[in-house]
C-alpha cells in the first residue's frame, strides 16, 4: 500500500523525457503516502531501457513480451487492469502524452477509478491526494482533490519538472506478462516520420513565428518584411499551420518541432504550453502580443504589449536603418 507506480514511456527504442521527469515527483508523493515509488515498463527486448531507469534508484518492474513491441492502447489497458488488481498501487501515473491519453481514461472507466489528467503538480496532504492542473491555456490553475479510492490515476504533463539526477542503481524485477489473450481490435500498422520541408526550422538561426493573432493570410506581408530584414525563417503556432498560413513542417511545439534559434520573435502567439515546449530553448525571445496576460510573456526576454500591426512597420524600418 502507498506505492506509486510510474508507467514509463518509450518509443522507437528511446525513453521519453516525461518518464524521467515523473521520477522527480513520484518518490516524494510515495513517501508521504507511506510507500515507495516503483517504475513499470512494458516492451519487447527492453533490458537496456530498464537498466537506464534503475540508475535513478527506483525499482523497475519489467513486462517483456513481444505483444508490447509497439504501443497499443487496448493491450496497455488490459495489462494495467491486471496489474492494478495484483499490485494494488495507491497511484498509477504516466505521461500526459499521445500515449497516456489514449488509454488512461478508458482504464479509469473500466476500473471505476478516479482520474486527473494533465496534472502539473501532485501532493499528498492530510490523507488526501491533490493535483494541480491548468485551464484556459494556462490562465487559470485548478486544485483538484481525489476522494478516497483504492488507486488514483494521473496523467502528468511533460516538461513541467526537471528530471532528477541519477542515484544509486536499483534492481530490475521481471513480471509475467499479464496479457493472456490476443487483443484483436486494434492493429498497429506503421510509423510515419515527420515531414521535412524546404527549410528545417530546427536548424534556423533566427525565427519569426506567427500565431492566430495574424487573423488572415493577407496580413502576412509586414511579417515577411520583418523576416527578410533580419534574415529569419518563418515559423508558427499550430493555429497558424492549421489555418494554412504557413507550411505544416514550420509548426513549433510538442506536436511540431523543438527549435533553438539565437533569436525567436513570437507575434500574436498566446503561449500555450504545447507551443512553449518547442521554443523555450531559444536564446533570446521577443514577444509581441496585445494581451498583457498572455503566457508567452513568461518565457520572453523582451516584451511588447500592443497590436503587432501597429509595431511591425516601424520595427522593420528601424532595423533596416540600423543595419545600414
Amino acid at each position: 500500500m502507498g506505492n506509486v507506480l510510474v508507467l514509463a514511456e518509450h518509443r522507437q527504442g528511446a525513453l521519453r523525457d516525461v518518464s524521467f521527469e515523473m521520477l522527480a515527483v513520484a518518490p516524494g508523493v510515495a513517501e508521504d503516502m507511506g510507500g515507495e515509488a516503483v517504475v513499470l515498463l512494458f516492451g519487447s527486448g527492453i533490458d537496456d531501457l530498464a537498466k537506464k531507469i534503475t540508475e535513478y534508484g527506483l525499482k523497475v518492474l519489467v513486462v517483456d513480451d513481444p505483444a508490447f513491441e509497439n504501443f497499443n492502447a487496448e493491450k496497455y489497458q488490459m495489462a494495467l487492469s491486471a496489474i492494478i488488481d495484483d499490485l494494488k498501487p495507491s497511484v498509477l501515473m504516466t505521461g500526459h502524452t499521445a500515449q497516456g491519453v489514449d488509454f488512461m481514461p478508458a482504464l479509469a472507466v473500466e476500473k471505476k477509478l478516479p482520474l486527473v489528467s494533465d496534472a502539473v503538480g501532485l501532493s499528498y496532504e492530510d490523507g488526501t491526494l491533490k493535483a494541480t492542473r491548468t485551464l484556459y491555456s494556462g490562465k487559470v490553475n485548478a486544485l483538484v482533490a481525489f476522494k478516497p479510492a483504492d488507486t488514483y490515476l494521473v496523467t502528468f504533463r511533460e516538461g513541467t519538472v526537471e528530471a532528477p539526477e541519477p542515484a544509486a542503481a536499483a534492481e530490475v524485477e521481471k513480471l509475467d506478462s499479464p496479457l493472456k489473450e490476443d487483443v484483436p481490435y486494434r492493429k498497429f500498422v506503421e510509423y510515419i516520420e515527420a515531414e521535412v520541408g524546404d527549410v528545417d526550422i530546427t536548424q534556423s538561426d533566427v525565427l519569426v513565428a506567427i500565431g492566430r493573432g495574424l487573423k488572415e493570410d493577407k496580413n502576412l506581408p509586414p511579417i515577411e518584411e520583418l523576416a527578410a530584414a533580419i534574415k529569419a525563417d518563418l515559423a508558427g503556432s499550430r493555429a497558424a499551420t492549421d489555418a494554412g498560413w504557413i507550411p505544416h513542417d514550420r509548426q513549433v511545439g510538442t506536436s511540431g518541432k523543438a527549435v533553438k534559434p539565437r533569436l525567436y520573435i513570437a507575434l500574436g502567439i498566446s503561449g500555450a504550453f504545447q507551443h512553449l515546449a518547442g521554443m523555450k530553448g531559444a536564446k533570446t525571445i521577443v514577444a509581441i502580443n496585445k494581451d498583457p496576460e498572455a503566457p508567452i510573456f513568461t518565457v520572453a526576454d523582451y516584451a511588447i504589449v500592443d497590436d503587432m500591426f501597429k509595431v511591425l512597420p516601424k520595427l522593420t524600418e528601424k532595423i533596416k536603418e540600423l543595419k545600414g
Binding site: F71, N72, F188, V189, Y191, A194, T254, S255, G256, A258
Partner: peptide, 9 residues
C-alpha cells in the same frame, strides 16, 4: 504523436 511523428493504426 509528439514531434510530428504519426502512428498508423
Amino acid at each position: 504523436l509528439e514531434g510530428g511523428l504519426l502512428e498508423v493504426v
